[in-house]
Design a protein around this nucleic acid. Structure first.
Length: 467
RNA sequence: GGCGGCGUAGCCAAGUGGUAAGGCAGAGGACUGCAAAUCCUUUAUCCCCCGGUUCGAAUCCGGGCGCCGCCUCCA
């Protein structure tokens, strides 16, 4: 059987994935800077990574996944100064919000969420290693990485140091460095800023160093996969390679996977354009988090996704189709009647699972994998329309669906109870229908629809679901 | 200026040499008291444009046009 293929940013090719340790994948993904609520574009990256880790598990790997939390950085410091509080007061709020959002989106927890502020000693060690190798220089108490000392610089992004300088914007950093491409490893203390007292002096770490230090601490100096949004390719990940490999002399990461940005109405999200959405904003507009998840998860991670309200509505409809199918099977399981077994259905189920795997193996081609699921749903519905199927078969399909959903993560098993008032209305409508008082029955149905409860009359009685 | 990516129906989106998946929306039909759900039929003579290679290209090559991202701390 063929293996899994991923598009590696470093080689610009799809490559067969081979883990360093058999059956175990070690991956690092760049997490949020907890200075504000994350927006839906940020979650695209986390959702892509979630599907990646879920799929690796689906394919039998044990996954050790590390996602960092950047909790010391310019914007955090600025906010703490404005609000006259510590950086920790700022970060704890948004960190909590971040985890709440992960739960809303059914994003699985990574194995580790290291924070930068907890790993200053590790960063210091790494910087010292680079110093010993003569790859750094100091200016006014700050320490810089000398990019020219790393001959492989530019391997990932294709930006060679000499071309970066050509047309790049003028360095806006307040710190002094020799070459435009050099970057700061350690920032000397500034008045009013949070700082650490260390053997490198008083100051705080630069941004890139935290990922190298924490990744290598938790995953080793050479691991399998590193992910992030496309904007991380340069300079962040390029610099991570330079730091890590510069210090260890070993290869840092085998596969670099990056997702494209999520656009809003064709444009990059920004506060000034007013097209900036947090997950909470979209939920307040009435979108179910699973519809939002489906919208993103069913797109290909290497294609820019354009978020529109129309698109979200379509995603909700598609997701409902899956949920309806799931509900239909659950209902069969609960019915007393026993149906017949359909060989065709077995065939369709097997084929669906096979196609799902085949497409996900091909660089996580979710659009095609999802199409296979819809094909199956249509065929299965057709067979079930012809007559009841055997319970055991419904059970098998539910199991297949659950396997697929262990990757997509969009099926919610909510066993919620209707409150008495609604229960009473449904009963009242039932009576009205029996007496052919259709106007009254329809009025009740409309009323419940407004409350988000949809009624469907079937041969076996009324069925209800949430919008 | 440098690096990378994209351009397929009303919308979203697959397809990288063999004659256009899938979802949403729309239209018609079956079912229904009416709906909903479900099923059936239907919706691109054609894949941004122009050349070229080929028996054959949306798919490869060359040249345009348009759009997006990155180029120092934004996923």
């Amino acid at each position: 059987m063929s293996g899994i293929y991923f598009y590696n940013t470093e080689t610009n090719r799809k490559e067969e994935f081979v883990s360093i340790e058999p059956d175990h994948v070690r991956m690092y993904t760049c997490g949020p800077t907890v200075y504000d609520f994350a927006h839906i574009g940020n979650y695209r990256a986390y959702l892509f990574e979630d599907v990646l880790r879920r799929y690796l598990k689906y394919r039998g790997y044990k996954v050790t996944h590390v996602m960092n939390l950047t909790d010391v950085e310019d914007k955090i410091i600025r906010k703490s100064q404005e609000q006259n509080c510590t950086i920790f007061d700022v970060t704890k709020t948004y960190e909590a919000a971040f985890f709440e959002d992960l739960d809303s989106l059914c994003i699985e927890r990574a194995e580790h969420y290291p924070k930068a502020t907890d790993h200053v000693p590790e960063m210091i060690d790494l910087i010292k290693k680079l110093q010993e190798k003569g790859m750094t220089y100091e200016k006014d108490g700050s320490i810089y990485y000398r990019v020219n000392m790393f001959k492989d610089y530019g391997r990932l992004s294709g930006n060679r140091p000499e071309t970066v300088q050509a047309g790049a914007r003028i360095d806006a950093d307040e710190y002094e460095k020799e070459e435009a491409t050099d970057f700061v490893l350690w920032k000397s203390r500034k008045e009013g800023e949070h700082f650490w007292q260390t053997e490198l002096g008083e100051g705080r770490p630069g941004w890139h160093i935290e990922c190298s230090a924490m990744a290598m601490k938790l995953l080793g100096s050479h691991f399998d996969i590193h992910c992030g949004g496309e904007d991380n390719i340069f300079p962040h990940h390029e610099n991570e390679i330079a730091q890590s490999e510069g210090a260890t002399g070993e290869r840092y990461v085998n596969y670099w996977l990056h997702c494209r940005h999520l656009l809003v109405d064709g444009e990059k999200m920004s506060k000034s354009k007013g097209n900036f959405y947090t997950l909470r904003d979209l939920m307040n507009k009435g979108f179910h988090p699973m519809a939002i998840r489906f919208f993103i998860v069913a797109s290909h991670y290497r294609t820019p996704v354009n978020l529109t309200m129309e698109g979200l509505h379509a995603a909700h409809a598609s997701w409902s189709r899956i949920m309806d199918f799931h509900g239909r099977l659950k209902e069969i399981m609960q019915n007393d009647a026993e149906g017949r077994r359909s060989d065709n259905l077995d065939e369709e189920r097997t084929q669906c699972l096979q196609r799902f795997k085949e497409h996900m193996d091909d660089d996580l081609d979710a659009p095609r994998a999802v199409a296979a699921v819809f094909d199956f749903i249509r065929e299965a519905n057709k067979i079930m329309d012809e007559g009841p199927i055997a319970k055991i078969q419904a059970q098998e399909i539910l199991e297949a669906l659950s396997q697929i959903d262990s990757v997509l993560g969009v099926i919610v098993e909510e066993e919620f109870i209707l409150d008495e008032e609604i229960e009473r209305l449904i009963q009242e409508r039932h009576e009205a229908r029996k007496n052919k008082e259709f106007a009254k029955a329809d009025a009740i149905r409309d009323q419940l629809t407004e409350q988000g409860i949809i009624l469907e009359d079937t041969r076996d009685g009324v069925r209800w679901k949430r919008r």
